[in-house]
Design a protein around this nucleic acid. Sequence first.
DNA 1: CCGATAGCAATATAGACGTACGGTTATAGC
DNA 2: GCTATAACCGTACGTCTATATTGCTATCGG
Lengths: 210, 210
Amino acid sequence: MPRVADHDARHGQITDAVQRLIVRHGLTAVTVARTAAEAGMSVGLVQHYFTAKDEMLLATFTRVNGRFTARVDELVNRGEAEGHTIADMLRQALAELMPLNDARRAEFLVRLAFADQAAHSARLAAVQRETLVGIRSRVAQAIGNGTVCGEVAQGIDAADQALQIVAFTEGLALHTHIDPDGTSKPAVLAALDDQLGRVFTGTCRRAQLG
Amino acid sequence: MPRVADHDARHGQITDAVQRLIVRHGLTAVTVARTAAEAGMSVGLVQHYFTAKDEMLLATFTRVNGRFTARVDELVNRGEAEGHTIADMLRQALAELMPLNDARRAEFLVRLAFADQAAHSARLAAVQRETLVGIRSRVAQAIGNGTVCGEVAQGIDAADQALQIVAFTEGLALHTHIDPDGTSKPAVLAALDDQLGRVFTGTCRRAQLG
DNA sequence: CCGATAGCAATATAGACGTACGGTTATAGC
DNA sequence: GCTATAACCGTACGTCTATATTGCTATCGG
């Protein structure tokens, strides 16, 4: 058989290039020629790995969303392992949704750029929706755990509160982006705290792990 | 002088056409040729009223945002005139930010479509930011009135709460759009109620107008 | 009533874009 | 070491786009 290449690595090179272009100049400025240049390869090679531009963009969106949820997952797991309170863990995980540093801003801009496209593409919309419900269900589970543990009062609907908290967080993220001056980083984190404090009103009855 | 035309009307025809195209097929699908066809006029005439496509898009964004804040304003004024409680008035006004019917959905999609572009255009960003701070300051003022009146407890920072409430509302709007099945209309309105209920905890001490 | 001028249409033009395609290079298997 | 085949490049092609240009038409001021 002929020479082989690391397909995953190449896909990553290309989608990373797309992401950088989106961050710097917006989705409109993403062309396959520019992407090839940014990725340091030829136009033909990009075509070799993505039959069409749509596929390339879908792959980029999927990858970014995957990394996004993976980060949230990791923070949840680490929080549990290190025995933090559920509220603390959520505080950190939700802060990941906000464009407060370059990496998060990059992810945020990509998700924002595809928001319009997703409204008119079933496949993009599916990725977007799955990411959202994934985050939401994780938060709901955390709240459920908090109810069992004692951090959350009985009678609180975990799904409802998860919906509200995630919506609030994403709205805050959007506002941070639109008006960074009127929405300072500490103010944003304080607002998030405030919101979480409305649900996490108690303390855990059971001993923490770790 | 030669024959005259209603410039405002023509601008409106064109930007309305742009809005319809965005709603139906996304910002990417907006070309001056298609816009002209949608508006029922020639390409040359569109050029006659907008020197460049950028101007056309900026005008569309400005108009939509203007209508948007105007609707909120009107609801606030009407609410005051009819002697509703401030909480009720805000409930109605903020529901205007949500894509719960065709007209609001159209506005929402336009604001969403420009979100990416605005990240890379100072003029679009300015319109976007001004709209946001406009809404926010109106809400802050309502909360301030609520404090004086007695609907809101003393010691509540109106600006902080306005930030949170508007962020929450916009996040909810986004989620309604992304996952309409998981975010039913009554559930959304209930969530909004819940959020407002956390700030508007009292009843007005003074007699209502009207 | 007439000419200056804005309103309006049709077409021309130059460029950018996605993608198809032909060709070259390198390597895994025999 | 030959060959099949994947990796990779460069370019050509057809389409679409924004915009410039040219010309016609209607109407207001004098």
